[in-house]
């Protein structure tokens, strides 16, 4: 009896059967589903990071009394950055263990995972989903402080020259603004700078940089829309009466 014969006899006598096809199919599906899910989580995290960046007015940050770094760190969505990093690592791992994943170098694994997450995340951000996701997360997770909450804290420091709120009324001399604590402020804006796209009208949410001049009085040097960076360049300083 030659070795081939022995082998076949051994298979027959021990009733060894090949694993069923469904196990391989299930494994393949599990790996690709894992990859899809991790890319999706990475994309969602990336979209929220984009949303946060949109919410930060970098040109105003440099006017902060504290350092630019401190201002940035206070707004950085560290939790989402962690989610993104974790999701990217997991998606690289699952891709590596796909059928031909070993063919990819580490750089290509990272490249594919990042590219998919960035593309999907950008699409999700453009569709407006990032803001909703961020808010939903803030509502459901007690410990999580939303970008809006952080931003409100950052712009609720009139003593340090930062004020945010909603315009209640507008006159050529002053704005009436209600801050996030419900306190009413009279804003002198004769010497303030604001971008052309901002509408100084009741109901508009704004953030102001300037100086507190009284118990409920504030002199603004910059006025910016609350919802993020203006898309066009800085507007030359002009009087509201112009």
């Amino acid at each position: 009896m030659n070795t081939a014969h022995k082998l076949v006899e051994q298979i027959k006598s021990r009733h060894i059967e090949p694993r069923p096809q469904w196990q391989y199919t299930a494994l393949k599906w599990a790996v690709w589903t894992g990859f899809g899910l991790t890319v999706l989580i990475g994309a969602l995290a990336f979209s929220v990071i984009l949303f946060t960046i949109q919410q930060v007015d970098f040109r105003l940050l440099q006017h902060f009394g504290h350092s630019l770094l401190e201002g940035l760190l206070s707004l950085l969505p560290l939790i989402w950055i962690s989610f993104l990093a974790l999701a990217l690592m997991l998606s690289m791992y699952t891709l590596r263990y796909s059928e031909r994943g070993y063919k990819f170098t580490l750089a290509r694994l990272a490249g594919y995972s990042t590219a998919f997450s960035i593309l999907l995340g950008t699409a999700f951000f453009i569709s407006g989903g990032a803001q909703q996701l961020e808010q939903a997360f803030a509502i459901r997770v007690d410990l999580y402080q939303s970008v809006q909450e952080k931003k409100e804290q950052l712009w609720n420091r009139p003593e340090e020259g930062y004020l945010g709120g909603t315009i209640v009324s507008v006159t050529p001399e002053a704005l009436q603004v209600e801050d996030f604590d419900g306190q009413a402020w009279t804003i002198d804006y004769a010497n303030a700078d604001w971008p052309p796209r901002i509408q100084l009208e009741p109901g508009e949410q704004v953030k102001l940089s300037g100086e507190k001049t009284g118990a409920a009085r504030f002199e603004a040097t910059f006025i910016r829309p609350w919802g993020g960076q203006p898309l066009n360049g800085p507007r030359p300083k002009m009087s509201p009466k112009e």
Partner: peptide, 22 residues
């Protein structure tokens, strides 16, 4: 070596449906 090869072929048999013709 023959023992190792026999064991390997038992594994090959068990995983024969997992062979990717690509």
């Amino acid at each position: 070596a023959e023992d190792i090869l026999q064991d390997a072929f038992i594994k090959i048999w068990r995983n024969l449906r997992g062979y990717d013709p690509g």
